[in-house]
């Protein structure tokens, strides 16, 4: 990772964190404040991104939405990736027959498209923020688990570990000194790429009316509201969407700089 990429990544992450943790610094207004007289105001100096059907300021809402959107994305990634790391590692390190069984199950789960799987889970649990996190987490886990498994398996069969065996190191030392540290970096890349995807999936659920309910300033929910007024107020859809794209692109760029492959998602 080059120096410039490092600095850029840190700056970008810093901005997102600032938006998520202290949105009022960037947008002092109230994201939920209604002002019907100013409904459907075009983007301008008074309202950078315009206002929605109830006169709420879109700029304020996009900034304040960062917290929810990112938190849902992070939580879903943590759940999916945590599950994936556990399953993938077990599969990679266990004897052939167990590995085969886990692999088959993962393949079966992978056969259901992610969003369909998420919808399936929500059909069981009912809509809401919590179910959306669980749904996105669970539906992305099988794909990640397969990657984690193959990554650890490659490491496990590497000449590096063989050399360590020849030097007489115990299994625990090999795992601690070589396997875990060398598996971490690609996993970090994968997690970064995954956050971008999770934010998108979570927003998709809100967009479909199954995640965060309105009028909360969550990006997907804002897009869902904007859809109704697409011909009337394009700014209602444009800016929350740009925010999602920005997060996803940043996550991809940072993930790739960390050595992640696009192929992996």
């Amino acid at each position: 990772m080059s120096r410039t990429t490092k600095i850029c990544s840190i700056v970008v992450i810093g901005i997102w964190l600032l938006m998520a943790l202290a949105p009022s610094l960037l947008a002092p207004g109230d994201p939920l404040a209604i002002n019907p007289t100013e409904a459907f105001a075009k983007p301008g100096f008074a309202h950078f991104f315009g206002t929605d059907e109830s006169g709420r300021d879109i700029y304020t809402r996009v900034i304040h939405g960062a917290g929810d959107s990112l938190a849902i994305g992070l939580a879903a990634t943590a759940l999916g990736m945590g599950l994936a790391i556990v399953l993938g590692t077990i599969a990679a390190l266990s004897p052939r027959w167990l590995d085969e069984i886990i692999l088959r199950v993962l393949e079966a789960l992978y056969a259901i498209p992610s969003l369909l799987m998420a919808l399936l889970i929500i059909a069981f649990t009912g809509p809401g923020v919590g179910p959306a996190i669980v749904a996105v987490g669970l539906s992305t886990a099988p794909g990640y688990a397969r990657l984690v498994r193959s990554q650890i398996r490659t490491l496990k069969n590497s000449e590096m570990l063989e050399a360590s065996t020849v030097l007489g190191r115990s299994t625990w030392l090999k795992v601690r000194n070589h396997l875990i540290p060398n598996a971490l970096k690609p996993l970090l890349a994968l997690v970064t790429l995954g956050i971008g995807q999770a934010v998108i999936w979570a927003a998709a659920l809100s967009f479909l009316g199954l995640g965060t309910p309105p009028p909360a300033p969550e990006w997907g929910a804002m897009l869902s509201a904007g859809r109704t007024y697409l011909h009337l107020a394009w700014w209602m859809s444009l800016f929350p969407g740009l925010a999602i794209v920005a997060v996803a692109v940043c996550a991809t760029l940072i993930g790739r700089a960390l050595g992640g492959k696009v192929k992996s998602l």
Binding site: S158, E159, M160, E162, A163, T165, V166, L167, G168, S170, T171, N177, H178, P181, N182
Partner: peptide, 25 residues
């Protein structure tokens, strides 16, 4: 392997491609 381990120090290995046998970190 646990029995073998105490004898391991008496035998070393060299490969064709040494880089693959080094921890990249």
């Amino acid at each position: 392997e646990s029995q073998r381990r105490k004898l391991r120090e008496h035998m070393g290995a060299i490969y064709q491609n040494p880089l693959g046998s080094f921890d990249p970190r």
